[in-house]
Amino acid sequence: MTILELLLGILLSGLRSATPLLQVLLGETITERAGVVNLGVEGQMLSGACAGFAVAAASGNPWAGLLAGVLAGMLLSSVHAFLVLVAGANMFASGVAVWLLGGGLSAFFGIPYVGRRIDGFASPDFGGAAKLPLLGPILRVATPSVLIALSTWVLCSLFLYRTRAGLRLRAVGESAESASTLGISPTKVRWAAILAGGALSGLGGASLSVDLVRNWVEWMTAGRGLVAVGLVIVARWNPWYALPAALLFGVVESLTLRLQALGVTISPYLLSTLPYLVCLGVLVWGSARARSKGGMPRDLAQVFSKTE
């Protein structure tokens, strides 16, 4: 195996394990660009993973599973939108409430599915192409959810920077006050942004349970949603940077799995702390950069530094 193939292998398995995270990260970026933080993405992921798995198991159709995940994520995020935008609750507290709600509901309704397995997407037959050096591994990693995540990445970035709606959304995040003098309704835009974030985090959860691991366990996302909220800062609220940020976490995660498979004597539990510690490290670095270089939506800055 050449060095190039090895590196490609690490990158590709990193991409695979970063896929759910990338979806959530993009969703949270959109939500935060409109000036709202949502810690509930963790719960939205869980509900998406649970609903997606249940529907995929019942219907035998993984596409229906992904769709169910999207809907479950949106449904739960509407609770956050209601609490924050209509009732005027604190964003962080409401996020924790939604996180608990999603975790509790998915654990409650997910019980019959624990321990079951599904087939997921059928892997297409590439014939001879799958045996090619370089191209083969790429084809094998490219499952529908990975491809969806990568296209979402491009679409989200184009949406934010190249469309009128994206401009409106960013304007609301920078200053809701000025946006409303331009005739934009900040509340409407924020509703849309939170629901979009909910859809993407639900999709991320469903990608995890339906396509990548193909089973369902309570609290299976293990903090990926919260990691995503941290990585948004690292990616400086720029969806283009979301891919490298998610890849970093994915590569570290797949490297720890690879080390365990190689029979390294370090405890797997100790190794599993690495992705969180790396995330913490880049969060510290990213926060310092965000302070010096900016990039944080201005209305959001009030949320982060305001002490109430």
Partner: peptide
């Protein structure tokens, strides 16, 4: 299931946040 307690807890938290926000407003 055990998760019932978590669900009830989160419903309670949401209720507190919802009414608290409305009253403050």
């Amino acid at each position: 299931p055990e998760a019932t307690a978590v669900v009830l807890q989160s419903i309670l938290f949401c209720s507190v946040l919802a009414t608290g926000g409305f009253l403050r407003r």
